[in-house]
Nucleic acid binder design. Structure first.
Lengths: 356, 356
DNA sequence: TTGTACGCGTTATCAG
DNA sequence: CTGATAACGCGTACAA
């Protein structure tokens, strides 16, 4: 037997049909009134009344199927506990809200499976566009990106030929800024606490660090290089391992979470900062300012990158025929108390910004 | 003229029709193969092939309209930069992922309009359920909550009669734990840096603080109470204002972000922690451990609350006829170096003394 | 197993 | 201004 529409049956959610029937008009008229286009005063009154009585609320899914849009933008990042992504998210949110859309965030945990699954699910029309900042990029990943039915903008490094809108920074130069600063301050035993080497930022920062040391004629001592996760606890543990076998007079950390971990490891090893060991982080997040002493940090322009990514996405949504675009944001170094021995206090001091 | 379906026109996205036509079968067969139910080996081959050729990717919106579900859960919090929400989110994510769904997060900025707008948009079937943790609750808000077409669970205080699943804590008791601890440590000039009084947690903590002092027979000195936002910078500024007019020997902060701000304000005022001023935060986030010295903090069980909220939500999705449930998570106090003068610091080091 | 046709809830088009 | 009806893309009874 063929199912027929129930005659406004039971406690099912009211639809336009329910409202129309109750108001004694056609669903077309009901829909028009509900959308505020047209309708005689009398019709408007009847429909409004009926809608209120049955507690009508439109089904956004059905509306989207028809309109081919949802008014939703998604952002996928590895770890929402990392303040750099929070800053990026805020920048994106501002742009997205401006366009009348809403931003949804998903934390992927850096797992490629998770991220491609998200792409396959969300990008299939649940959202009007996506911004994704992957720390690991695989071929499957790239396929998911280019096959995406909705526009996608990538924040971060991507293969040259990937036909995807992309906003990147130059972390090699960023690392060089930090190393230059430390060398100029007279440091020579510069240690490096990095994130996983199988991640895009991890690999780039490792290469940048080695190149920067080489440019100063400093030999690379692998005992001064340690790897962990991009997190506080891992950064602290990694620094402890490093300190157990070497005596750095400076420490560069691949992000601010690691830097705070390093700071605590240094305290635990009776080292003063910046006197014994100068400390520099990366990403220039709020965390660098919240530490004591405040931590010098390489800004990779995450706010700018987020904003530009959002703008690129909105442009592409408006005009999908645009060619793939690639933008780069220059890094800069924000010097704070953790790397300047002469600095009397972490507070009330103007910070110095150094650009490449 | 009535529009007719274009004969697999141009560069429009392929649909089941496209695939079916190309494979020379009906859309029903195509759909069945695509969903892995039924189909002869030959049909399966043809459909798979056709799908691959045209790069078919299913439209999730259309699928959801039919299936009445999206596999998506949303979480709405005020500020994703607050680590307490990050912890909560992780707990929720674990449960949600377990059920095969994905979690989407939205930061409302504490604006009621924004939050109700989100409820009206997302809850209208874009997601299978929502968890929302509002810091301000208005009538409009409550209406949006109870009218929601999809299940909603609220984390935080709600009026007694609100027919909404709800997981709360008892922040009054939480504040009392902190005050008791400080009083027992011999502190009497206990200051309080709170968040906005027009928020639910702000109001509850203010009441709790006054009640706790009263229970110890300590007179309330309004000069020792200051209000700002639930953020680092605001907490620091508020503490500076407080220190300009009073000399507390202890400071309770309404959350850990404020506590870190207070810590810096104290450093700036030449105060040692915990010797001159004992410091206690709330929420017991990672931030409390990342500060130096590590900050004592009142745990409001945010991880437990998040997990329970997610479990309640999944239960309700499975059975919408359940009666509204209300759960409470007991607070506890985690004592660290910032409030115990005799205690060695977390790293066996004496607390740092700071000079201007 | 396969194809036809209906319905999910909405908006948009067309004729009256 | 109003009503009938075709889509949006998909899943699935039902009959063949």
């Amino acid at each position: 037997m063929v199912r027929k529409r129930l005659p406004s049956g039971g406690d099912a959610r009211p639809t336009v049909h329910t409202v129309a029937a109750r108001a004694g008009v056609s669903i077309a008229s009901a829909s028009r009134v509900l959308n505020g286009v047209g309708g005689s005063p009398e019709t408007i009154r009847k429909v409004r009344e009926a809608a209120a009585e049955v507690g009508y609320v439109p089904n956004a899914i059905a509306r989207s199927l028809q309109s081919q849009r949802t008014g939703l933008i998604a952002l996928a990042v590895e770890d929402i506990g990392n303040p750099v992504y929070v800053a990026m998210m805020r920048a994106i949110e501002a742009v997205v809200a401006e366009s009348g859309r809403q931003l949804l965030v998903h934390a992927t945990g850096g797992k490629v499976d998770n991220e491609t699954a998200l792409l396959r699910r969300l990008a299939n029309r649940y959202v009007d566009g996506m911004i994704v900042s992957p720390i690991r990029v695989t071929d499957a990943h790239l396929d998911a990106l280019v096959d995406s039915p909705v526009p996608v903008v990538v924040v971060g490094q991507l293969p040259e030929d990937a036909p995807v809108d992309n906003v990147r920074t130059d972390s090699r130069t960023g690392v060089a800024l930090a190393v230059d600063h430390l060398v100029e301050s007279g440091r020579r035993q510069i240690g490096f606490v990095n994130g996983p080497l199988d991640t895009v930022p991890g690999a780039a920062r490792d290469a940048g660090f080695r190149a920067a040391l080489a440019s100063h004629g400093i030999e690379i001592d692998d005992r001064l290089i340690e790897v962990g996760d991009f997190q506080y606890a891992a950064g602290r543990a990694a620094t402890q391992r490093l300190l157990a076998r070497a005596q750095p007079d400076a420490l560069l950390c691949a992000n601010d979470l690691i830097a705070v971990g390093a700071l605590h490891a240094l305290y635990g090893a009776n080292q003063t900062v910046p006197q014994d060991v100068a400390l520099v982080g990366m990403d220039d997040t709020e965390l660098a300012q919240m530490a004591f002493p405040q931590i010098s940090s390489v800004s990779l322009g995450s706010v700018t990158r987020g904003r530009r990514a959002a703008e690129l996405l909105l442009e592409r949504i408006a005009d999908p025929s645009l060619p793939p675009r690639r933008e780069q944001v220059a890094p800069s170094l924000v010097v704070r108390a953790s790397s300047v021995a002469e600095s009397p206090t972490p507070h009330g001091l103007p910070t110095v910004e150094v650009t490449a």
